[in-house]
Design a binder for these strands. Structure first.
Lengths: 154, 154
DNA sequence: TATTGTTATACTCTATAACTATA
DNA sequence: TATAGTTATAGAGTATAACAATA
């Protein structure tokens, strides 16, 4: 009966949205304890994967305007997480670079993410984990088919 | 081998986070077309489920301060989605109430959400859907066990 | 001429604190 | 005295547009 399915689909989407809201809120709360916001953390996270980067690259990675990156880097400089270093070959650009504090906090974030993953999935048997993992795969694939932009698919 | 599992857990968490980012970005984009932001939409959504409400109730529902609700309602009044009506029995309070435009857009949002759910899940067989639905259940339950606040569990 | 990042300006979301009107 | 909502003030994120310095 189609009507029944529609209700179930809506309920499942509700669960998915509840998941995203809960994850978002939890991350925001955890970051605030380190004196970070979500946007600034996203910048630090990218920086951790790329190493010292011109602001232009960070703007592209975060999907925001160069102007927004100026503000984010200003904030991260003021709070001691990064510095602007001169670009060795392009005097227009500067390289956003971790301070010791910045390196420390990014390592901590990476470690916390691993621990969270272990807490979330570590109690599952192999087949149970596979079931959930392939469910996530399906959802990601379907979203992409529906035209949604997935992060990292730039 | 535990090391292998840790990598898989981290990858699965990455998928989950990618899912949340993609859904968030897509919703924000769709809402902007209706002249709405996420925060204002969340307020309209709550209002759609509760009917005319004092700002205090909306503040509790959205988990923000009463002051933030004043700003959101101001914006929604300016853009013609809601009005403030006098509370029948408490002259301190006002009831945030839909305009015709507000009602129309909330109906549209609800319809779009149903359509999106159908697009996301409608191609699945019964057992396939059950697999994904129970995966979402597991994740929600586990998050709750880990102390995360789920929306609607207030 | 094109690119990098800035200043100028504006809008949105949110918070705390002090205050008004009403209960 | 307590509650509903406001004004005042402030910080953060983002956008567009105009501009500087450099490529």
């Amino acid at each position: 009966m189609a009507k029944q399915s529609e209700t179930e689909w809506a309920a499942a989407l509700g669960k998915l949205l509840a998941l995203t809201i809960a994850l978002n809120a939890d991350m925001a709360g955890a970051l605030a304890k380190d004196g970070l916001t979500e946007a600034r953390t996203q910048l630090l996270w990218e920086l951790g994967m790329r190493g010292p980067s011109p602001q232009k690259d960070l703007a592209a990675a975060l999907g925001v305007t160069p102007r927004a990156i100026t503000s984010l880097v200003d904030g991260l400089v003021e709070t001691g997480f990064v510095t602007r270093q001169p670009h060795p070959s392009d005097r227009r650009a500067s390289l956003v670079t971790f301070t010791a504090k910045g390196k420390r906090v990014v390592s901590k974030l990476q470690r916390q993410q691993k621990e969270f993953a272990a807490a979330l999935f570590g109690d599952l048997s192999g087949p149970q984990f596979t079931k959930i993992d392939s469910s996530l795969d399906y959802l990601l694939t379907r979203l992409q088919e529906l035209g949604l932009e997935l992060p990292g698919s730039s």
